[in-house]
């Protein structure tokens, strides 16, 4: 019973703090997602491009961010972007810019996410028949229209399983941001563990929270995937 009171809501327990930290974890992951997806898609376009310079620079990007440990990327962005950002803002606007741990986490995780997402998109691109492009050209669609109306709808369906996987990885990797001070689940449960001297209770709770988040997202993703496949013939 005593242990349960530690988890209660209010000033006695950690319930409200932990609930807020779940919000931070989820919002970090959600904020990273669109940024990572867009960058990943652009990277895939770059690697697919006939322009060799574009190919090379997209490949440099993915090599770097798939090769660096996420924790190190986070430190480099957190400290480096601050130095760089201050320098640029100082020279251009004469003020300073604050890059907090949320933004640093978003950028670092987004870079890593996009590097892996570009792979997923690339293999999805391979799954689209050349005839689709030719057909669109025959219909007189512009390149942009082809992309928007013909390719992307098919691409999403092909890329969804891979992207679902990346989302689950992203959700777990947000935990690293606790190291640079963002009050996410691991950070807050860690503080509670130290203050209350109950590390087993609180870190088990942290693991359970992530399991619940993973479970909920997989259920959600399954529905989305089903929805994306609704046009297919059931075998």
């Amino acid at each position: 019973m005593e242990l349960l009171s530690l988890l209660s809501y209010g000033s006695e327990g950690w319930g409200d703090e932990i609930l807020a930290s779940i919000g931070v974890t989820i919002s970090l992951a959600l904020a990273t997602l669109p940024f990572g997806l867009l960058l990943g898609f652009l990277l895939a376009l770059g690697i697919n491009s006939r322009e060799s310079s574009l190919q090379i620079s997209a490949k440099i990007f993915t090599t770097i961010f798939r090769g660096l440990p996420e924790l190190l990327t986070l430190f480099i962005v957190y400290y480096g972007a601050q130095i760089l950002g201050n320098f640029l803002f100082q020279t251009v606007f004469g003020t300073t810019i604050e890059i907090n741990s949320f933004v640093a986490g978003m950028v670092a995780l987004g870079f890593v996410f996009s590097a892996y997402a570009s792979e997923v998109f690339l293999s999805a691109f391979k799954g689209i028949n050349q005839g689709q492009y030719e057909g669109s050209a025959a219909l007189g669609l512009s390149r942009f229209q082809t992309m928007r109306l013909v390719i992307i709808p098919q691409l999403i369906k092909l890329a969804l399983p891979g992207l679902s996987n990346l989302w689950l990885i992203l959700l777990k990797e947000t935990s690293l941001v606790s190291v640079i001070g963002l009050a996410d689940v691991v950070r807050i449960t860690g503080v509670a563990a130290r203050v209350e001297k109950e590390p087993f209770l609180f870190f088990s709770l942290a693991c359970l929270i992530y399991l619940a988040l993973t479970f909920l997202s997989s259920a959600g993703l399954e529905r989305i995937e089903k929805n994306a496949r609704r046009g297919e013939v059931r075998s």
């Binding site: 807020a20 919000g23 931070v24 989820i26 919002s27 959600l30 904020a31 803002f89 606007f93 003020t95 300073t96 810019i97 604050e98 890059i99 907090n100 949320f102 933004v103």
Partner: peptide
């Protein structure tokens, strides 16, 4: 609340 947190933390303030 979630949206609010997201909005506040997302602010990259040019801290004048």
């Amino acid at each position: 609340k979630l949206a609010l947190t997201a909005a506040t933390v997302l602010m990259v303030s040019g801290a004048a």
